[in-house]
Design a protein around this nucleic acid. Structure first.
Lengths: 246, 246
DNA sequence: GCGCTGGTTCGGCGCCGGCCGAAGCGTCGC
DNA sequence: GCGACGCTTCGGCCGGCGCCGAACCAGCGC
């Protein structure tokens, strides 16, 4: 819960924060970083289609604004989203950008049928993707539902991990990385903007996602946030969760 | 229902939406509207400290962007947040503006604790105020309800004043200023923006308001539109309308 | 009819910010 | 040492946008 008394954001504050995301290039950068990984400055520059010098300026702004953090390593500058609040903000805003009606009576259609590859990418994202550092899309929601159906997650009085669920995670992760060490909330409900239903976030969601990648349940589709479920992943999910994905 | 496959926000989309809130004036407007009420264009212009023409442009942008909706009523333009998603977005962004670390060590302090008087004024306005020239707020709606309950107002096929109602006004106003001389409609339904319910406007509403002020049923709170119900007014309303206000 | 007032449209002004290319600086590998 | 590479800093260009004032339009009351 947020402390409201301290949240007396002035118009200037709000405008400042929104201004960070109000630029096409910066927005593209933030969306790219939603895969939870750290990108180098030049990678982002290429991705956004601007000169390296331009990217530097944008990254400086975003870091100064608290949305991104960077790490210098050798001659590289690695940049990532600053944390869960930042990721949530971008996610929320991106979702709203799709939801909100244009209100101009349907004059400007979507800019164009968009390239065919864009359509494919969209479908891939809706099927399975990472949301910051955990699973999202139909896959993420399905996994969350399965965890709930088996009694590993409880939604009474907020989302909690049951004792059975804790045990399940311990077995799955082989004790090595469980329970999580960080102070971060173990489970957290994250609203999925393609499914409009919650999926599992938090430390548990992150650990599960990490495991899924390491165990090759899923593979990243190129450089995007999209994931592709492997055959091994499909059978593994059936084994450990009784989840039958077509 | 929105087509899901279309909900893949691009950097441009995100930037566009964020851009709506990336201006100090527009952000101030949206924050002001967070009280759920509808404001007139000039009220907002004054509140934000810009010329009316400037406010018009901003409001057009916000409406076109789907964040705000407006209703023309007479010569006024009432504006309010488009809906729950829009309000949630602003809320979220405002909260994040407070949460996110400034990252610059914390130079500029908060300008002011956002006066306590503003809160008081809001409450006072919701309780009772003038709406152009008639009573509004909880008081205005309560009076209107009482008039209806006693059969003085009829809402079949539009709002009309019944014969009993006409007589009631004649008695109350002592014949002097009744019936009203102007060509203005005698009764008129006016939507109350704090109560979201209709209250009485038109010549009858204006006459009633005038009488209420002259008979000291209510007194104006300073220079604002807010009204304060006096003890005399409370007992008078009980006498003439059977209206029991706590 | 007239005057008042709330709102909008239109020109024009000034500034801010995004962009680039060129030059500079550090790191890495040879 | 040297070049290659990643990144940054600095001018400078240009478009866009927020602002205003003046004129105009439309309700409303008289």
């Amino acid at each position: 819960m947020v402390d409201m008394t301290d949240t007396a954001a002035t118009g200037t504050d709000l405008a400042g924060l929104a201004g960070l995301l109000a630029d096409r290039t910066r927005a593209t950068v933030c969306l790219a970083l939603m895969d939870g990984r750290a990108w180098t400055a030049t990678e982002l520059a290429r991705h956004a289609g601007v000169a390296p010098s331009t990217a530097t300026e944008h990254l400086n702004l975003l870091v100064a604004g608290g949305l991104l953090t960077d790490v210098r390593q050798g001659r590289h500058r690695y940049v990532r989203l600053a944390g869960t609040p930042a990721a949530e903000l971008v996610e929320r805003l991106a979702a709203a950008a799709g939801e909100l009606a244009p209100a101009d009576g349907g004059g400007a259609e979507r800019p164009a049928p968009s390239s065919l590859t864009a359509v494919h990418r969209r479908h891939a994202l809706a099927a399975a993707r990472t949301c910051y550092d955990h699973l999202a899309g139909r896959l993420g929601v399905a996994v969350t539902d399965a965890l709930t159906a088996r009694g590993y997650l409880s939604w009474d009085r907020g989302l909690t991990l049951t004792d059975d669920g804790d045990a399940w995670f311990a077995v799955l992760l082989d004790g090595a990385s469980w329970p999580p060490a960080s102070r971060r909330p173990v489970v957290r409900s994250c609203l999925d903007w393609t499914e409009r239903r919650p999926h599992l976030g938090g430390a548990a969601g992150a650990a599960l996602c990490t495991h899924a990648v390491e165990a090759s349940w899923v593979v990243r589709a190129g450089r995007t946030r999209a994931l592709r479920l492997t055959d091994a992943g499909r059978s593994a999910l059936r084994d450990v969760l009784g989840l039958d994905l077509t």
